[in-house]
Design a protein around this nucleic acid. Structure first.
Lengths: 248, 248
DNA sequence: TCAAAAGTGTTTTGAATACACCCATGC
DNA sequence: GCATGGGTGTATTCAAAACACTTTTGA
């Protein structure tokens, strides 16, 4: 089901030189526990390109914008075709349009998304593999640059919104939530202070269940679904049903 | 020199139904003192459309993306053609691509810019007029929505960056700077606290000159040019010479 | 001398931080 | 019991805010 960038049909070959095509790509973030270090790593799915340009290189999942679908819809479709899952968060990142970013003129509307690790299908998808963002290979086009920018946005936004929740299952302990923040920000957080901030945010609902382990049980929390993952301003009303996540 | 949205030449008429065209528009913010209330108002230049669709309605300045120019370059060109001035700040806002936002399929890459009032040419440009964003008429396409979103971004960004400086001349008093903030945020700020924040920001350089008026003279300040107007992350390196402002 | 804006000082509040310490469980 | 993470209490630091007060000018 993976759709890579191939030439769409066009009216006449002569038009090529003058035509700017619109592509949509998505940087899909998720988390994976490294079996070796036992630490959470931020990972993104990449697609192996099977044709030129950049055949044999890893690239962001994406495809051409259909004339009959909105940008958001195109991002959702792309994402579903690649990973077969609905993201818990999806937001437009940036439009990249340097003239020389591709052999032919392509403007890419790039989205970024968050996916809960438990929603990633166990069965691997052909030509797709998840990569630690800290150890990315050289990607096709300007995709290294794009991932770098998406990471910057993720790290910024995690500081003033609750998007980290988009990477967690419905119920989670405060230690698990803290670990998400730590893996994204790349530094340790004080458990006591983190707990207070989380509790005072008004977005967490304590449950009656506890995670039992080898030590004192930790309370499970849920999210207050009334609170948006992030303030998107006047854009929030633009959301279409296909972008609504399983959060709701 | 005002360029409005007209049909670009295309290879063959049959291609129309399948072609998605890319336009670039810019929300250009500036400030104007209302002669009546003597208060600063946030204003944007609008262009009267002289042909369908939406003939006779005001619209954001914009034009089609040339196949040989980057998105940033297209925004700069558009802006220069409309206002004949270089903005002190220019940043991509959002890509709008709803299917029904125009009779034909158009994806608009929208930028937002800041312009110093003293850089606006006194001679009016044909079909262009500046409007108070608080009293906008019904605009063409989804441009009301776009301006609303741009305003939201401006108000957000003014809180954690020094972009307000992009609306002021080289030298200014703290009262003038404070008035810019007040007009953007729509609320009064404490002069004493504002002064302290401004002085501690490390971005202001006091001069030896003073604004004399009917009362105690106020010191002029300049900006520390070493500090960027806003942290644009990894995107900062993307800036091309044509986007560099007169700030540098 | 007075009005008005420039500029300083002081107090309070609240959030972020650091860190000491108690609690509850499996082993 | 004791190791280990869960969870609480508290002191410190820092910035934002509120507001009283002094300074300097033109009229």
């Amino acid at each position: 089901m993976t759709q890579t960038l191939i030439e769409p049909r066009r009216a006449s070959p002569e038009a090529v030189v003058d035509v700017t095509r619109v592509a949509v790509s998505t940087v899909i973030f998720s988390l994976r526990r490294d079996p070796g270090t036992d630490r959470l790593a931020v990972v993104v799915p990449l697609v192996m390109r099977t044709r030129d340009p950049h055949e044999g290189q890893w690239a962001l999942p994406g495809g051409w914008l259909d004339a009959t679908e909105s940008l958001d819809a195109a991002a959702s479709r792309t994402l579903a075709e690649t990973t077969a899952i609905a993201p818990s968060y999806l937001e437009q990142l940036y439009a990249f349009g340097a003239v020389d970013r591709s052999p032919t003129r392509v403007v890419s509307i790039v989205y970024w998304a968050l996916v809960r690790p438990d929603e990633i299908p166990a069965a691997p998808v052909e030509n797709v593999s998840w990569h630690d963002v800290a150890e990315l290979p050289r990607l096709a086009f300007d995709h290294n640059h794009i991932v770098e920018y998406a990471l910057w946005r993720l790290r910024n936004k995690v500081g003033y919104s609750r998007i980290a929740h988009g990477l967690l299952a419905d119920e989670f302990t405060l230690a698990e939530l803290r670990e998400v923040y730590e893996s994204i920000l790349g530094r340790r957080l004080d458990p006591a202070n983190f707990r207070r901030q989380a509790e005072n945010s008004g977005t967490l609902i304590p449950t009656d269940r506890f995670r039992t382990g080898s030590h004192r049980p930790a309370r499970f929390y849920r999210y207050n679904q009334d609170v948006e993952l992030a303030d998107r301003g006047p854009l929030a009303s633009e959301r279409t049903p296909e972008n609504e996540s399983s959060t709701s």
